[in-house]
Each structure stands twice: as C-alpha cells, then as structure tokens.
Design a protein around this nucleic acid. Sequence first.
DNA 1: TCTTGACGCCTAGCTGTTCTAGGCGTATAT
DNA 2: ATATACGCCTAGAACAGCTAGGCGTCAAGA
Lengths: 111, 111
Amino acid sequence: MAEDKSELLKGTLDMLILKVVALGPIHGYAISQRIQQISKEFFQVQQGSLYPALHRLENRGWLDAEWREASSGREAKFYKLTKKGRKQLEAEVLNWARLSDAVALILRTAE
Amino acid sequence: MAEDKSELLKGTLDMLILKVVALGPIHGYAISQRIQQISKEFFQVQQGSLYPALHRLENRGWLDAEWREASSGREAKFYKLTKKGRKQLEAEVLNWARLSDAVALILRTAE
DNA sequence: TCTTGACGCCTAGCTGTTCTAGGCGTATAT
DNA sequence: ATATACGCCTAGAACAGCTAGGCGTCAAGA
C-alpha cells in the first residue's frame, strides 16, 4: 500500500540515459533495455518516461537524433551525445557523487 | 543557465528527515539546519520543502508532533518517529542502497 | 527608536519529472 | 488469427520541490 515501485528514478534518468548513449549511438527502445540490463533489472524505464526524456535531452542540445536502420532491420531513431551532452554528463556525474556522499554522511550519523 | 541548484533533494528529503528525527525529538526549523550541517552545507532544505514534507510524513503516520518549548525558550513543534516511521526509514535506506548501487553499476560501465 | 535579522511556523501556486494508459505500425511465431 | 516483440509516440494525472510570499517574537545595532 505504500510500497511504491514508482519514482524509482528519482531524477537520475537523464544522467542514466546520457551515460548509456555515451557508450555509443543507440536507439530509444534499446536504451531502456540497456539500463534495465546493466542495473540488473533494478531500473525499469517506462516508455512514458523514456521518450519524453529523450525529447527533453534533445531539445536541450545534449543529444542528437538520426533515423537509421536498427539491427532488426527496422528504422529506429538513434541518439548520440553532443559536446554539450558530454559536459552535461560530466556535471551530472559529479553532482551525483556529491549528492550520494552527502546522503551517506547523514545516513551514517549515529546519535 | 542550466546549472540548477534546484532539485538537489531528488526524492531523498523524506528519508533525510526521518533519519534526523530518528536521532531524537527535534523541531522543524532545527531539522533543516541539522541536515545542512551534517551534509556540510550540501543540502539546503528550503522551508517551502520542509514544512509540507513534515506534514506529509505526519499524515502518513511516520512522525508524531507535539508542541514544546525549544531551547530558545519559544514554542516549537517537536517531531518524533513512530514505529511505522522507523520501518519506513529502514525501507527507504535499503531502497537507497539498492538505487545507488544500480546507478553505480551504470556509471561504471565502460564501453 | 527603528529596523534588521534570526528564530519558528505556515501556505499558494508554479514547474518539472514520472507514471499510467492509451495509440500506431510492422514483423514473426503460434 | 492472434499474440508478442519491436519501435515510436502522447495526454493527463500525481506528486515533489521551489519561489515567494505571510505571520509573530525577540535581540542587536544604527
């Protein structure tokens, strides 16, 4: 009743997408699979989260998109990181490190 | 221009509050100071985030509130963890561990 | 004296992210 | 024939966090 499987992503989605795209051009559907697979099924990126996020990142100039043929033989929209995207990824990774350090500080606080 | 200092908390606020309250009864204003201090100024909990969160946690039965006199001599609303709150804190800490592990897996992925 | 700032509580309303729940079209397998 | 995987998309709801205000008290300094 309060055991949300919701809000798993907690604002990390952009960073995760940028990271996966940084590994090499990849299309949307595959991005969500890859995130799920690498995270050992912890993250399950819903399509209703994925596609708006991709459009967001593209609009901000962090991703470039191009229609190409996927390995399946079908057309798919491949994304790759822009220079700005690479910088953004670095910034987000740094910020994540600081955030999780700060959280750890608080969680470690014994009375 | 995109260097948000916003959204620092990324859904961790509830957990941080529960943790700080778990250290002992404490009033709202002091909670935000304590979080800021322990996190070495990383987290700055705005009052517009803090108080709604406290009411949320109280409504969910995770916190109990009581007006008492603060060390300053003024009346303040002191919060303490309920049993449910303690369970919730445990669950959130566990989930945070899983989440940050999953993020780490993805960030560590070299090509 | 007056004003500023810290203390301590609160809310309304905006924005942004994520989810649910739907839609579309193609191909393959049952 | 039908389901399932692939692959894209959106609208709308829910919710968290922020900005920007408000209220009242008290101490310190101009």
